[in-house]
Amino acid sequence: MSSQATTAGATTVYQVTGMTCGHCEAAIAEEVSAIPGVTSVKAVASTGRVTVVATAPLDDEAVRAAVDEAGYELVGRV
């Protein structure tokens, strides 16, 4: 698990499979951004990593459901 203290809240990095392009990044960012408390999402297709900043620690199952809704698979926390 990778967590950093920031002024925005809790930062968590997840590994996601299936991302290949900017459209993939945008689709994941849009779905994960809809989770209550999420303030920032950065998806990077080349590494498969999704960095999420939220006001409080996130429920991994909520993130998994959002990634699944976007059409990708959450492997777990980095």
Rank of each mutant, 00 (worst) to 15 (best):
E73V: 12
A27I: 01
T55V: 13
V38W: 00
V63K: 04
C24S: 09
G76R: 08
V67E: 07
T12D: 06
K42H: 10
T17I: 09
R49C: 01
G37R: 06
D68Q: 13
H23E: 09
Y72F: 15
V75F: 03
S3F: 09
A27L: 10
C21W: 07
T20P: 00
T7K: 07
T6A: 08
E69W: 00
H23N: 15
A56I: 03
L74N: 02
P36D: 14
A29G: 08
G76T: 08
P36C: 10
V38T: 04
H23Y: 06
V78A: 15
I35C: 03
V44S: 09
G9I: 05
M19V: 04
A26G: 12
A34D: 14
Y14D: 06
V52R: 01
V67D: 06
A43K: 02
S33M: 08
T51E: 15
A26T: 14
I35M: 05
L74R: 03
P36T: 06
V53S: 12
E30Q: 14
C21N: 10
G48N: 04
A65F: 01
G18L: 05
A65Q: 14
V52P: 04
Y72K: 02
C24L: 06
T55S: 15
V78E: 15
A29N: 14
D68N: 06
R49E: 15
K42L: 11
V41K: 02
T55Y: 02
E69H: 12
A62M: 12
R77Y: 02
P57A: 14
A5P: 08
T51G: 07
S46I: 04
Y14E: 07
E31Q: 15
A10H: 14
S2P: 04
S2N: 10
A65G: 03
T47H: 09
A26L: 10
A10E: 11
T6P: 00
V44C: 05
S40H: 14
A66K: 02
Q15V: 12
A45I: 01
A5V: 13
D60R: 07
T55L: 12
V41A: 04
D60Y: 03
V41E: 01
K42Y: 01
D68P: 00
R49T: 12
V38E: 00
